[in-house]
Amino acid sequence: MGSSTTGLKQFRLKLPATAEDIARLEPGMIVYLDGIVYTAREGAYKRVLEDGVALPDGLTELSNANFHCSPAAAPDTDGSYRVGGVTATASFRFSKWMPQWLERTGTKIVIGKGGMARDDYVNILVPHGAVYLTTVGYGTGALLGRGIRAVHAVHWLEELGIAQAMWMFKVENFGPFIVDSDLQGNSLFATHGDRVNQRLEALYEGLRPPALHRYGETDDRRKEVM
């Protein structure tokens, strides 16, 4: 663990991550990864959890880090792949698949964009000993692209397409990522969100609601829009 010029703590994490290393991660820490990271999002989740397709052999031994991402990648003539940039996609949309997915794969590190809904940390990640890392920006696609040394394997490319396929990347000094949540379920997004919220009331002072409301703005379906 080191300290950068920005004053934020930095950590180089080896994958698959050990329980000890995961326990050392604190919200707000900057992390770089070495090892194998795999991508999976709605396409892969549906395929395994809803259509009953088996997980690729050896996934759980190879990697316990699930990146919510689609690479900008293209097949080369020699059968390998050129990966240009890598950036995360918003994770909250995958919440409904995460409990089963963590259970099935033994994934301990979820990497994505924007974190999860507040309750998900305590209800989904903490019981599985998992933490959330967020990409920076978003996104530092070129820096992350540099950290990918090779495509270790790609699964379901034909069935799901480039964006939804499961890519397994061999990575080195892959980052930066920011630790969002820890094993207690504390979340950086939640604490910063709370601090931002404190100012909002003053910000809206004197700004009346518009004359025309929107049906569905509340769950009360009897409400009219005027």
Binding site: G85, T89, G139, G141, A142, L143, G145
Partner: peptide, 17 residues
């Protein structure tokens, strides 16, 4: 840093193009 890396490596700044 990311924009510098993109221009240097001629790779997209963001993978979600």
């Amino acid at each position: 840093d990311n924009w510098e890396a993109a221009t240097e490596d001629r790779r997209p700044m963001c993978a979600d193009t």
